[in-house]
Design a protein around this nucleic acid. Structure first.
Lengths: 124, 124
DNA sequence: TTACCCTAGTATACATTAGTAACTTAAATA
DNA sequence: TATTTAAGTTACTAATGTATACTAGGGTAA
């Protein structure tokens, strides 16, 4: 009775926890949408802005910086006039998209059931 | 030149988008940690609270309610003295954990590289 | 029998983070 | 001179999360 309690995993609150470290970063409102938008190939700031409905300039800038910092996205400046800036997935970014896509596929398959569950819960 | 632009996917801002609908929900600070804690089997409120370092009572209550609403977690009250409340993954919850685990496994394998990338970025 | 413990929460106030709308810079074009 | 395109920044508001106190129904110890 007490035995199976001992084995339960503890989730420590430090920088070694990959869930807190990685999932927290890409689990925000915009990161996954930007990553998926870049699967189609490199894209420019304003193109991304119009392809991701509802994102503001500030959040696009900020989330692109975070993704660049983590090494998922590469930013290239072309010194033309007017200047052109392209964002592209790195090798690591393309790797990340694979398991992320599994999750989205699951979400696509189950979001009807989830909506039903939400509706039933709210009617209680 | 213009041709490959036309094919790029657009991410609409409506309730049909599974990324916004599902990933946004489980991508918060605590949901994935709670789901993984429950993989080991049903657990009680205070046990979860001590296993997930740093979570407050309020966020544990609130996140458990959200997970229950989405149909990932089932809540059972045992009218003992003192009252016992157990939380357990539903079938859908156990299904969700599979692709989520793929993502965490990727995170575990790559979080060194991510940390390096962050460090290099911050030193620029 | 007053005081403090356990369980599983709720309520309130506050702090932090995420997000929006409007403005800025800078050069090219009409 | 006014407008357009690109890539932001600034100042503000909304959402999320934390800390602390409180509830309720009993149990335990002095």
């Amino acid at each position: 009775m007490a035995k199976n309690k001992v084995e339960k995993r503890i989730f420590y609150n430090n920088e070694e926890c990959p869930i807190r470290n990685v999932v927290a970063q890409i689990g925000d409102k915009w990161s996954s949408l930007i990553l998926f938008a870049l699967v189609d190939g490199a894209d420019r700031f304003n193109s991304l802005k119009s392809r991701i409905e509802g994102i503001s300039q500030r959040m696009l800038t900020q989330t692109l910086r975070d993704l660049e910092r983590d090494g998922y996205v590469e930013r290239t400046i072309f010194p033309e006039v007017p200047v052109r800036v392209e964002y592209e997935l790195t090798k690591m970014g393309r790797e990340l998209v694979k398991p992320l896509y599994q999750l989205v596929a699951w979400a696509e398959a189950n979001h009807q059931a989830i909506n039903q569950s939400r509706k039933a819960y709210d009617e209680r």
